[in-house]
C-alpha cells in the first residue's frame, strides 16, 4: 500500500521466484492430513470391493465377482430405482419448492426475516434429530394420524413408515423439510444478484409477471441452478441418516437406497466386500456430478 511501485511489478506477482519452503509446507500438511484420512482409505475401499470379507478372517480376493452379483441382485435393483426416484423427487421438489419459497420471501417486507428463519431453522438440526422428530409425527397415535382423523380423513390414516407403498415418500418428507430452507437460501442470493434494471425495462415493455419470470428470472438463475443441482445430488447420494433412522431401508427394502443397502450389507450382514462394491457404485453415480462441480471449480480457480 505504501508503495506505488507495486503496480509496476508482474501482472501475477504471487511468488517472488522460488517458492518458500514454508509455503510448500502450508499446502503439504493439509494435503497429507486429507490423504491420510480420505484418499488412502478410499483406495483401500476400492480394493475391498474386489474381495470377499466378513471383517474377521483376512479378505479374499475374488476379482469382479461382487459386481457380477449385482446384476442378479433384485434388492440392488430396487435400491438403484429407489435412489433414482429419491433423486428425482427429493431433488425436484426441493429445487421447485426452494425456488418458490425464495420468490415468496425475496421481497424485503416487515416480518420476512422471521419467515425465512422459520424455513431455514431445520437446516441446522442433525439428521438424527430430524428423524426422531418425524418418527414422533408418524407414530400411529401421532399428530399426523390424529389430525387426519380430526378432519374426517380417518380412513386414510396409515402406518406411514411401515407400509411399503408409503415408506419411501414418508421418508422424503423430513428430508425435504430440512433441505428446502437450504435451497431457498441459495436462490435468495441468486435472486438478489439479478440486476433490477432488467425488470424495470421489462415493465416498461409491458411484460406480465409471468413473462418477467420466464424471460428474466429463470435465465438469470442459470448459474445458481447448477449449484443447486450439485448440492442436491451430492446430498441425496449421501443422505443416509434419515432413512436409516426412520425405516432402515424397510419394510422389506421398499425404502432401500444404495446408501442404506451398502450399510446394512456391510455392517449387518457382514459382507464387507460386497458392501464396498456398493459404495463404489455410489461413487460412480456421484462421479458425474462431482466431476462437473470440479470442472466449474476448475474454471473458477483460474
Amino acid at each position: 500500500m505504501a508503495l506505488v511501485t507495486a503496480g509496476r511489478l508482474r501482472r501475477r506477482p504471487r511468488g517472488a521466484g522460488r517458492v518458500p519452503p514454508l509455503v510448500l509446507a502450508f499446502v503439504l500438511i493439509p494435503l497429507l492430513a486429507e490423504g491420510f484420512w480420505v484418499f488412502w482409505p478410499a483406495v483401500q475401499g476400492f480394493y475391498l470391493s474386489l474381495t470377499k470379507w466378513d471383517g474377521i478372517s483376512p479378505p479374499q480376493f475374488i476379482g469382479l465377482a461382487n459386481y457380477r452379483e449385482m446384476l442378479h441382485d433384485s434388492v440392488f435393483h430396487t435400491a438403484v430405482l429407489d435412489t433414482v426416484l429419491w433423486l428425482a423427487l427429493f431433488g425436484g421438489l426441493s429445487a421447485v419448492l426452494g425456488l418458490g419459497a425464495a420468490l415468496l420471501l425475496q421481497q424485503e417486507r416487515r416480518g420476512v426475516g422471521f419467515y425465512r428463519a422459520a424455513l431455514f431453522l431445520p437446516v441446522v438440526f442433525s439428521l438424527t434429530a430430524t428423524a426422531l422428530v418425524w418418527q414422533a409425527m408418524y407414530q400411529p397415535d401421532g399428530l399426523i394420524d390424529k389430525a387426519m382423523s380430526g378432519v374426517g380423513l380417518g380412513s386414510l390414516t396409515h402406518p406411514w413408515l411401515a407400509d411399503q407403498s408409503t415408506a419411501l415418500y414418508a421418508v422424503i418428507v423430513p428430508a425435504l423439510w430440512r433441505q428446502i430452507g437450504y435451497v431457498m437460501v441459495l436462490y435468495l442470493a441468486g435472486l438478489k444478484g439479478i440486476d433490477p434494471a432488467l425488470y424495470e425495462a421489462a415493465k416498461v415493455d409491458g411484460a406480465t409477471r409471468w413473462q418477467q419470470f420466464r424471460h428474466i428470472t429463470v435465465p438469470q438463475l442459470r448459474s445458481v441452478n447448477a449449484v443447486v443441482l450439485s448440492v442436491i445430488v451430492i446430498d441425496s447420494l449421501r443422505s443416509f441418516d434419515v432413512v436409516w433412522a426412520l425405516t432402515r431401508g424397510g419394510p422389506y427394502h421398499s425404502s432401500e437406497l444404495l446408501s442404506t443397502y451398502m450399510y446394512s450389507t456391510a455392517f449387518q450382514s457382514l459382507r464387507l466386500g460386497y458392501g464396498s462394491a456398493l459404495a463404489v457404485v455410489i461413487f460412480v453415480l456421484a462421479f458425474g456430478v462431482i466431476a462437473s462441480y470440479l470442472v466449474r471449480a476448475f474454471r473458477e480457480a483460474d
Binding site: 493439509p30 494435503l31 480420505v38 478410499a42 483401500q44 475401499g45 450399510y263 458392501g275 455410489i282 480457480a301
Partner: peptide
Amino acid sequence: ALLVMLGGNLLPPQILLIPVSKL
C-alpha cells in the same frame, strides 16, 4: 492440488467407513 482436495470432500463417505475404522 486444489481440485484433488475438493474432490476428496465430495467422495461419498460410505466408501471410507470400513477402511477408516480399521485405520
